[in-house]
């Protein structure tokens, strides 16, 4: 045996990790930058103050930014309000998307994996194709559908419909993968012992598939929080989700608070993934 058999691939792995984390590290670095620019000129947490300025007393903000006038300070507070409204929109949409797509997806997954019916093949095809199409197709086709056929006014409701549409296939996939691990004969046995369809659903299927359903919910939640492309096509004028809001900021020049916000979002993602992982492991036992 050679002493270090995977020396080359190990080096490539660590270089890749550096490549993957470099942008995140740069965002973190700039969030503590004293100046507005991308030139590091000293440590400061003032962008964290301005990120949360809508909840902080005005005197305090003025003390953190002594060089700014009243108008600029008001702009900072206004920006903070806009950022957190976008965060709130994103989370509201994500939770609603998670709930609806998990319910529809879980029922669909149960039907598809454990029952036979006439249009099963068709449904299997139709519900997985969106998974493989570029997102922009979903966005454009829904936009055209909403505005020309349904004549719906674009709003958070249309965003919600769009999000449910692209989350459903993923939720379905996750839950079906979980259900496939189980033996169908449990249900046959229950039926032989006289269980009704309702009992089978609530006392066998749902408890068995709970970890998969939860994983599907979390999957939908993160996909929805992440989405930009579908949202940007089906959104209304005045209620951006966070990705859309960040996009408009990038186009106009990004305020440094966004660096601070990214640090929170990155930490949030890491904590979410770790806790969900452990929780699913825990209830999966």
């Amino acid at each position: 045996m050679i002493k270090k058999p995977h020396a080359l691939s190990r080096r490539i792995y660590w270089l890749t990790v550096v490549f993957l984390f470099l942008p995140l590290a740069v965002l973190m670095l700039y969030s503590f930058n004293a100046s507005r620019s991308f030139k590091f000129s000293g440590f400061s947490i003032k962008w964290y103050y301005s990120l949360f300025s809508r909840w902080i007393a005005p005197e305090k903000i003025a003390a953190v930014f002594p060089e700014l006038g009243a108008r600029e300070l008001a702009q900072i507070v206004e920006r903070s309000k806009n950022i957190w409204t976008a965060v709130r929109n994103s989370f509201a949409i994500a939770f609603a998307t998670g709930l609806v797509s998990t319910v529809i997806g879980a029922l669909g997954a149960i039907g598809l994996s454990w029952y036979r019916f006439s249009y099963k093949k068709f449904l299997q095809g139709v519900s997985f194709v969106p998974l493989l199409l570029p997102e922009i197709i979903t966005g454009v086709s829904l936009l055209i559908f909403f505005s020309s056929i349904l004549r719906l006014k674009l709003s958070l409701i249309t965003v919600l419909i769009g999000h449910i549409s692209f989350c459903l296939p993923f939720v379905l996939l996750i839950i079906i993968a979980r259900l496939e691990e189980f033996d169908y004969s449990i249900i046959e046995a229950a039926r032989d012992l006289g269980a009704r369809e309702r009992d089978i659903l609530f006392r066998i299927i749902l408890p068995i598939s709970a970890p998969g359903i939860l994983a599907g919910f979390v999957g939908a939640l993160t996909l929805s929080l992440e989405d930009f492309v579908v949202t940007v096509f089906v959104q209304g004028a005045n209620s951006p989700t966070l990705p859309v809001f960040i996009h408009s900021l990038i186009k106009r020049g990004v305020p440094p608070e966004i660096n601070a916000l990214s640090v929170f979002l990155i930490l949030f993602t890491v904590v979410l993934i770790l806790s969900i992982r452990n929780f699913i492991k825990y209830i999966g036992k």
Partner: peptide, 10 residues
């Protein structure tokens, strides 16, 4: 898992 827009912005 970090938001695509943030990664692009980075």
């Amino acid at each position: 898992w970090v938001n695509l827009l943030l990664r692009v912005y980075a």
